[in-house]
Design a binder for these strands. Sequence first.
DNA 1: GAATCACTCCAAAGCGCTTTGGATGAGCAA
DNA 2: TTGCTCATCCAAAGCGCTTTGGAGTGATTC
Lengths: 397, 397
Amino acid sequence: MSKTLRFVSACQSSADAEKFNNHAALQNLYARQGALHVAPFRSNLPLEFKALWKYLVNLKQLSEYLNLSQTTVSRALNGYPEVNENTRTRVLKAAQDLNYRPNTRAKGLATGRALAIGHVIPVSNQHEMVNPVFGDFIAGAGAAYARAGYDMMLTLVPDQEEVRAYQDIKARGTVDGIIVHGPIINDERIALLSRIGLPFVVHGRSTDVNLPYSWIDVNNRGAFERGTQFLIELGHRKIALLNGLEHMDFAFRRRKGYENALRNHGVFIDPSLMRSEEMTEVYGYRAAKEMLARTDAPTAFVCSSIITAIGVRRAVHDAGLVLARDVSIITHDDALSYLENGDDVPIFTALRSSVRYAGSEAAEMLLSLIALPSHAPKTRLLEADLIIGRSTGPAAT
Amino acid sequence: MSKTLRFVSACQSSADAEKFNNHAALQNLYARQGALHVAPFRSNLPLEFKALWKYLVNLKQLSEYLNLSQTTVSRALNGYPEVNENTRTRVLKAAQDLNYRPNTRAKGLATGRALAIGHVIPVSNQHEMVNPVFGDFIAGAGAAYARAGYDMMLTLVPDQEEVRAYQDIKARGTVDGIIVHGPIINDERIALLSRIGLPFVVHGRSTDVNLPYSWIDVNNRGAFERGTQFLIELGHRKIALLNGLEHMDFAFRRRKGYENALRNHGVFIDPSLMRSEEMTEVYGYRAAKEMLARTDAPTAFVCSSIITAIGVRRAVHDAGLVLARDVSIITHDDALSYLENGDDVPIFTALRSSVRYAGSEAAEMLLSLIALPSHAPKTRLLEADLIIGRSTGPAAT
DNA sequence: GAATCACTCCAAAGCGCTTTGGATGAGCAA
DNA sequence: TTGCTCATCCAAAGCGCTTTGGAGTGATTC
C-alpha cells in the first residue's frame, strides 16, 4: 500500500492522488507493482508498461523489473565497462521501454555535479534594462548545453548584492559553472569567483583585472578604431560617439578605439561629441537631435548599438536630412535575430559580430573548463566584420 | 584526514586542493575541524570562522558547531514551532556567521520539491528567432522567483521534440512547474502537461483547447479591434495588417480583432493587405515597401510589433512619404526596456501592454499554483492601453 | 504521588542516485 | 586438486537534507 502511495505521488501532486486512484491505468500499474514482490517480472512479461509512460520509474523499480541490482543497472546506463554487453543492451532496452529518466537532483547529490550552468545577469535598479543581446546569446549557449546534457539556470542579481549572490550560487550547489555577463572595468566578480573556486567564463573582459581567467570577447577597440577610421577616410571630421555606459568594459574599449582613430589621423577629440548612456532608441534620438541642432553639427555618428542607431536615423529624418548624404551612421551590430541589419544590402554600415555565436562558443569553453578543471583559462577574441551598408557616404563638403 | 579532504574539496576543485593545503586560513580551519571530535565547540569559541566565509559549511558541521542535532538545526532554520526561541536565534546567528547555505539538491531530494521554475522556449529551426520579448518577460518573472527563493531554469526545445522534452522535464524533476511560452492554436502541450501533472502557466492562450488551464494573456483581439477602429475613425479605409505568424495564438487573435473592426464598419477585408510573418524589421520594411508601391496603396498599417513598425517607418521614408500625414502606423508595444516608445509623446500610436508585468504576474500565478495544487486554474486577461503617438493622423483625402 | 501534558530536543530512516569493496563463479595453469 | 585471474555482479555506504517517531524534562492536574 505504501508503495502505491509513493507511486501515485510520483505521478501527481498528492492533492490529486485521490482522484487518480480511480484511473484505470494506474490501477493496472498498482496491481503489477504489488506483483513485483510476489513474483518478479520477467523481461518478456509486462507489455502494458510501455503504454504507461506517464508513470515515472526510478532506478530501484527498473532494477527490480530487470532482476538486477541497482549497481549493475546504473553502471550499464552510464557506460561503465564491468557489465556484460548482453546485460547492457537488455538494460538499455528496458530503460527505454519504461521511459526511465534518472532524477537529476539525486544524481547531482551523488556525483557532486549539478549538470547545470548558471547565467548571472546583473540588474541595476537605476536603469532596469534587460540587455537585448541576452536572448540571442542564450539561444547560442542553450544549444551547446542541450548537446552536453546540461541544464541552463538563470539568476538575476541586483548589483549591490553581487558578492553574496555568487557565494550563494556556489554554496547552494545548483550549478557547475557560470557565465558572467556584463563585465565592468575592474570587475571584482572575477577575483571573487576565482577565490570561490567556481568555474566561469566571462562574456566580455575586464580592464584592470590581472588575474588569469577565461573570457570570450569581441575586439571592441579594434572594431571601433576601424569603423571610425572608415568615416575619417570618407572625409568626416566631426564624428560623434554614442556609446553605452562607459563603466561597462565593452563601452570603455570602444571609446578607446574611437579615440585612437581620431588621434592617429590628427582629428580633434571633442568631448561634447561623446555620449555614454543606456543604449536605447530614445537615447540615440535625443542625442542626435541635440547635436544636429548645433552650428558645428557632426556629420557622422558611431553607435554602440543598432537600436541607438535607429534612434539616430529618426533624428536625422526629423531634421530633414538624408542618411548617407548629409549624415553618416556606423554602428555595432550584434546580429540579433529580430533585428537583422537588412538583407543583401545592409541598412547600416556596421561592425558585425554575432552574439549568438559568442554564446555558443562561451558555452563550449565553460563545458570544457568544467570537464578539465586543471587546464589553464582559455580566452577567445572575436573580430567584428566591417560591413558596408547604406548609412554611410562621403562627408558633405 | 579524510575530513580535511572533504572540506577542501568542498571549497575548491580538487585540482586546486593541494595549493590550498598551504593556505593559512584553511590550516586553521583544519585544526578546528579536527578538534570537533575531541571537544566540540562552544558557540562563544571560534571567532575565526566568521572570516572564513568561503569555506562551505553543511548542516552536519553547523549542528556539531552548535552542539545540537541536525533535526533541531533544520527545524530552527525552517521556522518549525517545536524549537525554543533562544535556540532558534542562536542557530540563526551561527548560520549567518558560518555563512551556511542549504544545498539545494539535497533539500530538493528530501522534500521532493526542486525550488525551481522552468521556462520552456520553443525554437523552430525554420525561423530560429528568439522572441525579443523574452528578456523582459524573464526580468519580470525573475524578480518574483527571487523573492520566493526559487531558481529559474531555461530550456530550449526544438519543436519536433516537444512531447519528449516535457516528459523529460517532469521525470528529471528539476523544476516544480513551468511557464509555457509561445502557445499556438490548439497547442497540444497543454493537454500533455495536464496529463503529466506538472503545474504550468501559459503566457498567452490557445484557441481550441477546451481543458481548463492557467494562463495570462493580453486581450489581443480587443486591442487590435480597438486600434483598427481608431484608424477607421480617422478616415482610413485601406488598412494593412502586418501580423506575426498566424499559427501563433496571439497573432490569430489579433487578426480576428482587426477583421472585426473592419467588418463592423463595413470596410472590405482585403487579403492582399494582410501579411503574416516572423516580426522582424526587414519584414515590415519589405511588406510596406511593396504595398506602398501599389496604385491602391494602404494609408495605414497595423503592426504586431514595434520592430516591424520601425521597418514600416523606414519604407515610408524611403517612399518619400511623411508619417502620420501620408501614412499612419499603429503598433502593438510590449513596452520593452530597450525599445521605449518615445518618452512624453510616444513615437508610435500603440497598443501598449507591459510584458515585464505579465512576466511578474505569470510567476506569481505559478508559484501560488504550486503552493496550492488543489486550486482551480487561474486566468488573467490584461488590457492593452491605446496610447496616441505621432504616427497616426487623419487619412489623406 | 501518579498521570498527564506541553515543550524541547534527538536518532534514524528515508529521498534516488553513485561508488566502494567485495562476492561469486568460470576459466586456466600448475 | 589448488591457486589465481577475469569477468560479472551485488550489498551497502554515502551525498546533505527533511521528517517520523519517540525520549527526556518539568510543570500541571487529579
